[in-house]
Amino acid sequence: MIRYIVRRLIAVAGILLVICGITFVIFYVLPADPATLACGRACTPERIAEIQHQLGLDRPIYQQFFDYVVGIFAGRTFGTGEAAVQCPFPCLGFSYQNNLPVWSLLMDRLPVSASIAIGAAALWLLVGLGAGVISALRKGSLWDRGAMVVALSGVSLPVYFTALVLLYVFYIRLELIPYPEFVNPFTDPAGWISAMILPWITLAFLFSAMYARLTRAGMLDTMAENYVRTARAKGLPERTVVVKHGMRAALTPVITIFGIDLGQLLGGALITETVFGMPGVGQLAYQAIGTIDQPVIMGVTLFAAFFIVFANLIVDILYAVLDPRVRYT
């Protein structure tokens, strides 16, 4: 098990390094000269050369990449002498727009994205898994058919459309809730919930639908297994059969997907954040792309990839706990 985790950690590092490399090549080589962008208006050739030197852009590309990766782990110093700027661990560079460290920008935005992701995830697990299990146990019933029609509609609705409909109905027409904004959950929990509820419902509607479909299919498969029949035959209470024999096996694939989805959302729910004007990581990415702010784009991409890859790893390890058939070497 330890060996497996170590091996996977090395693979994770490898994947992140490759993603870092590809992102670097695309965003540093492809578009306009970053120094010109960083310089802004009223720019002289000397000033550009100076900035290029300051950012290390006059060095060979592989050297730049090496500096970037080393900077993440050890921090780095831009420029020399008087003009030297210290960028501490974990250094992802500075925004061209406002010269703030990318890492602190990300840390400012993370609570917003995490609030959206965690609230929505709690909601969709409850609704999605619940609806899926009940549908599977009452296959063909009115509830099952109704739930599956709703679920199929749910997976077909784009989030920005759901968001607009919800805003129109609950904010404009019924005036039930305030316009969504980020509220600190620790100082004002009630305000946090009422301000975040629309983004949560928007995301949870889509994901609940997906999870209900997955859970139902998984439960139908496992409940038809021989070992479930055996469990019933030996007289176990139905509740034990459903929960311990059925759900445990049926939910493992769902957990896998949950890890990936949650990881992806922690790295920024780009569309949801943009529609509701939530200052999360996704919105940061969107704004950075609009202004071609390369260090920020790089930072967000890596940050998001980190969450996805790491969530994958945790899920794989959890697998062994949930499913005794899985053993790692």
Partner: peptide
Amino acid sequence: SFPSLIFMIA
């Protein structure tokens, strides 16, 4: 593992 939406937009 790519945050592909960010990437596609960029």
